[in-house]
């Protein structure tokens, strides 16, 4: 019988207090599952970026984390505002982060490119006024 780990983490807009806790929990689980250090690092970077993205840019949303014996799927779903120009958003150095986020050291415009670089599969769908869904897949072998 194939086991499956499924977790959902709700992330609120502007919640810097708990920012990073979902990513930390995912990392702990992957370590317990014995995922290799190299993949763990890529997942750490991508999951942290995507979690912070929800805090900084979205109106709130959730992270869905699924593990099977072949790989890890991480989906971020938010309630908006949506990205008008995805191509522009994927460019390194492009950022719409506000001053609060920048003062905390975020907003260098590396978030999305960094996620794409670290994931084996990366997909982003967005509709202005509706929301953004990012799907990432990490293969364990």
């Amino acid at each position: 019988m194939e086991g499956l780990i499924h977790e959902e983490y709700y992330v609120n807009k502007g919640d810097y207090v708990t920012a990073g806790s979902a990513s930390a929990d995912m990392k702990r689980k992957l370590r317990q599952l014995g995922v290799s250090a190299l993949i763990l690092r890529r997942l750490a970077v991508a999951s942290y970026e995507v979690e912070l993205n929800l805090v900084i840019h979205s109106l709130g949303g959730k992270l869905i984390f699924d593990v099977d014996s072949e790989g890890v799927t991480l989906i971020s779903e938010d309630r908006g505002p949506g990205i008008p120009d995805i191509e522009m958003a994927m460019k390194e150095g492009f950022s719409t982060a506000n001053d609060e986020a920048r003062s905390l050291g975020f907003g260098a415009g590396m978030g999305l490119p960094n996620m794409k670089r670290n994931a084996d599969e990366f997909d982003i769908q967005s509709k202005v006024g509706v929301g953004t869904t990012i799907t990432m897949r990490f293969l364990l072998k």
């Binding site: 086991g3 499956l4 317990q32 014995g34 995922v35 014996s69």
Partner: peptide
């Protein structure tokens, strides 16, 4: 080398089952 003392099982499929049970 990484220390695998936190690992639930050497086989990832078994580790997943154990974590499921743990939850």
């Amino acid at each position: 080398e990484p220390n695998s003392a936190m690992q639930l099982d050497e086989n990832i499929a078994v580790a997943i089952q154990k974590m499921d049970h743990m939850n």
